[in-house]
Design a protein around this nucleic acid. Structure first.
Length: 269
DNA sequence: ACTCGTGTTAGCTG
DNA sequence: TCAGCTAACACGAG
């Protein structure tokens, strides 16, 4: 379930384990994951190059290379990055299930994209769901500012100035980048704001609270190992109660996504 | 057996 | 221009 914190762990893996290694071969034959590039196009752009720097905004990563192109990687819903050494050591980051990293996967048919390094190791995008994406020269500027770094004044303009339900606004990667469904529920619960409230009806204090809780939740999730460590996440199911006030959790749909909220502290319209 | 879902986005409709 | 819906991907969980 890569959300921003999981993507950051994957970016860090690339930064510490893959930079500087010469690309010897590229498997870009999955034309769905590599769309719109035809097989061979990404390969041709990267052969003989090295990875120079790994960046992230929200859930999107981009990797500078020693050539003319930037390599964009998105983990989708279940993608993981694995960087291997010639002699079998593995560094990995990305999707987490429960509170622990999954065991290192071995099924090669779930490798959707691979950079083979001249030293015998590789960087793999492992993604059972095939919702991850690899592309050259992604348009990073189309994204909003990173959700963990956005300033209050910008947040107010980007999130708080729309008639759309505030949760849908948080999920819009063009407004702020990096908030997924679980993180949105956690942040709205922490701020005690009902997810279906029109964003532009929040008062100044509520917007400020939402902004503060967003940054806090992201910081905690990065430190603790993922969004699933949020306080309310385990209570997103039928029969559960709010861990703060004990009221029943309610389920609804906002912005097309399953949404859980406290029935008392985040009351429905 | 069957339904739902942690994500994104092109393409469509109103 | 904005907002909402659907399909596409393929698997795991309940």
């Amino acid at each position: 379930m890569p959300e921003l914190p999981e993507v950051e762990s994957a970016r860090a893996v690339i930064e510490r384990s893959a930079l500087g290694r010469r690309i010897d071969d590229v498997d870009d034959t999955d034309s769905w994951v590599c769309r719109p590039h035809p097989p061979g196009e990404i390969r041709a752009a990267l052969l003989g190059r090295r990875l120079v720097a790994a960046h992230r905004r929200g859930k999107s990563m981009w990797i500078e290379t020693s050539g003319d192109h930037v390599l964009g990687i998105h983990l989708g819903m279940r993608g993981r990055i694995l960087v291997t050494e010639r002699h079998g050591g593995v560094d990995e980051g990305g999707d987490y299930v429960g509170t622990r990293p999954q065991r290192t996967p071995v099924k090669a048919e779930w490798d959707r994209f691979t950079l083979h390094f001249a030293d015998g190791g590789a960087l793999r995008l492992f993604d059972k769901r095939r919702l991850g994406r690899v592309r050259l020269d992604p348009d990073i500027e189309a994204l909003g500012p990173d959700a963990g770094e956005v300033r209050l004044a910008d947040f107010r303009k980007l999130v708080g100035a729309s008639r759309t339900p505030v949760k849908a606004r948080l999920l819009d990667q063009h407004a702020v980048a990096g908030v997924g469904n679980l993180l949105a529920d956690e942040v709205l619960w922490q701020a005690a704001i009902a997810p279906e409230r029109p964003a532009d009806e929040l008062d100044a204090a509520e917007v400020a609270r939402l902004h503060r809780e967003l940054r806090t939740a992201i910081r905690h999730a990065i430190k603790r190992g993922g969004v699933h460590t949020g306080e309310v996440i385990a209570h997103r199911k039928a029969g559960e109660h709010c861990p703060r006030c004990g009221a029943p959790m309610r389920r609804t749909e906002v912005g097309g996504r399953t949404t859980w909220a406290c029935s008392v502290e985040q009351p429905a319209g």
